[in-house]
Nucleic acid binder design. Sequence first.
DNA 1: CGTATTGGATACGTTCGTGTATCGAGAGGG
DNA 2: CCCTCTCGATACACGAACGTATCCAATACG
Lengths: 223, 223
Amino acid sequence: MVASVTARRAHTRQRLLDAALDVFAEEGFGRATVEQVCERAGFTRGAFYSNFTSLDELFLAMWEQRSRAMLDGVRAALAEVSAASAEEGLRAAVDAIPVDDAWYRVTAEFTAHALRNPPLRRVMAAREQAIQDTVLPALVAALARLGRRVTDRTGLGHALVAVHDGTAVQVLLEPHDPVVRERRRALFTAVLDAYSTPDTTLAPPARPTPRTAMPTPAPEEAR
Amino acid sequence: MVASVTARRAHTRQRLLDAALDVFAEEGFGRATVEQVCERAGFTRGAFYSNFTSLDELFLAMWEQRSRAMLDGVRAALAEVSAASAEEGLRAAVDAIPVDDAWYRVTAEFTAHALRNPPLRRVMAAREQAIQDTVLPALVAALARLGRRVTDRTGLGHALVAVHDGTAVQVLLEPHDPVVRERRRALFTAVLDAYSTPDTTLAPPARPTPRTAMPTPAPEEAR
DNA sequence: CGTATTGGATACGTTCGTGTATCGAGAGGG
DNA sequence: CCCTCTCGATACACGAACGTATCCAATACG
């Protein structure tokens, strides 16, 4: 038995899902076509209509799968942030959040699309919630290990999402400029500072005082 | 003379530009069609092809026009921020940045599109620069009137753009939830705090110390 | 070993948007 | 008052993408 028939089906389904990300990223949400996805996956439209009923359905399935995978990755990375050095730790935490070109495009356009489709808004809201529920605890724990206690959890959660989204564009628009990436990091740490306080009770010696954010335009390592 | 022939032309051109914003916002960047724009503007495709050569050209013209207008508005609003009260002043400054549904969708999709079109990246970069050049000075001046001196101008500029973009989505996804709007304001003031220091030399009595950002989850007026 | 079923390919007709080519009306100029 | 030119409308031909209906092959099953 080379491949169970149902197993084969699962494979083609997954290949279609993978192709979808590429095509949607390249062509844009509105211009992507069924044929392009099929061609990229190495199938014909017959295979597509046998597995999905519409492009929207395929897109949504792909988006949720990738979204889940990404959140899992971030959570796992945060779990490994250790208190070796607070600076280092924070940097690692920030870098744990991936800035992916294709994924950003897809998400941005999907968000815009969700704004006009009430049912899709629920999906977006659910993801917001998933972030709050899964990565925020990991982040709070990581910060605790670095000797900081967060004051406003939900505030911090939404702030970080906003900062990530906002700075991701800037990084992607200027992918080769390290200054932009450093600014992103600086903003992240500034926000983390603003929404947390040094925990004096059982803290490692790191970060004795609430720092005054960045010195001035500093391409070099902040602080 | 009812209308000079060239004046009439200018009018139809503008009507097409106006229609473009609505249609692109409603249908999405990739799905918007020439016919839809023309119908919305009350013309036929003949009028369109007489004024523009492609949808992309129309879109770009519209985007630059609206972009300019929006920046002018923000700059003007910031110029009117007075030191009556620092709190009030900051609130007014933040509220001066409009969160517009249609405009956000258009910009988000355009940004995603620009990421795959190098020539369009220049346009985005030019806008970034325009923001830095026109609204940042106004903001710095407004903050000075509130007794604060900014430490890292370009850092602040990019941080604010990122925060605006990131929080705008959240507000638009939950348009009727005042908590979300308040969180946006809180993040803005936190960032303004982080990137500026109280100017002790000639300051109005406002904001004696660098405030410690928000108290805790606070739906009510922060501070 | 033969038959039923399932997964994917092929073929087809239709709809929709595009761009160009042509036409008509009304304003500007002498 | 007539001629001309500009602007926008109308007509047309083409291509692209869609969704369905049908077909072929290979697997599951008795």
